[in-house]
Simulated assay, not measured.
Amino acid sequence: MEALNPVMWSVHVGFAVLWTGSVLFVSLAVLPSALRGDIGGDALAGIVGRLRWITRFAAVAFLATGGHMAGTLYTVESLTGSGRGHLVLTMLVLWFVITGLVEVASGKLLSGVDTGKLREPARDAKPFFYGAAGLSVLLLVTAGLLATPGFA
């Protein structure tokens, strides 16, 4: 069972890097191009559709790997009564909120692109993508704190 822990950790971190990087890329590189009208609707739909699928696949990976790690490394008492546990719970809440923001933002953007519009749906999705990006940075900081030996 101990050999499984590094595998679960590696898969968890790998998906976290892929997902948060994708959220930041779409929010900070792709969305500004959509707001200016510098990107085609098909390209935008493809990129945002891919982000949506990455978000969904990552959710399954996070449930499996994070659930395994939480079940083997923590008890209810250590999750709710220690600094490390609070960091894990903070990451869980951030993950849920970011996932929701990405789903709402991508839905707004894709529904607008499907009707042939670009700038207006990008403006409608902007606060949700920017919120997801900001919280993604906070999620990475939280993960860094959790990975710091002796912290919390």
Rank of each mutant, 00 (worst) to 15 (best):
M1Q: 10
A3S: 14
A3C: 08
L4C: 04
N5M: 15
N5Y: 15
P6Q: 09
V7W: 06
W9L: 15
S10L: 13
V11L: 13
G14K: 07
G14W: 03
F15H: 05
A16E: 01
A16L: 12
V17Q: 04
W19V: 04
W19T: 00
V23R: 01
F25M: 15
V26Y: 03
A29P: 00
V30R: 02
V30N: 00
P32S: 06
P32M: 07
S33D: 15
L35N: 02
R36F: 10
G37N: 06
I39W: 06
G40L: 09
G41L: 05
A43S: 14
V48G: 01
V48L: 09
R50S: 15
I54F: 01
T55H: 01
R56C: 12
F57N: 10
F57E: 08
A59F: 14
A59D: 13
A61M: 11
L63V: 15
L63N: 10
A64C: 11
A64P: 04
H68V: 12
G71L: 13
T75R: 09
E77I: 07
T80G: 12
T80P: 05
G81Y: 02
S82A: 06
G83D: 07
G83P: 06
G83R: 08
G83M: 11
G85M: 06
H86D: 10
L89F: 06
V93S: 08
V97N: 01
I98L: 08
T99G: 15
T99C: 14
T99M: 14
G100S: 04
L101G: 02
V104G: 01
S106I: 00
K108L: 13
L109M: 09
L109E: 03
G112Q: 08
G116L: 09
K117Y: 09
E120R: 10
P121F: 02
D124I: 04
K126Q: 13
F128E: 05
F128R: 05
F129C: 02
Y130N: 12
A132V: 00
A132Y: 00
L138I: 12
A143V: 12
L145M: 12
L145S: 07
L146P: 03
A147Y: 14
T148K: 10
P149Q: 05
F151L: 13
A152K: 13
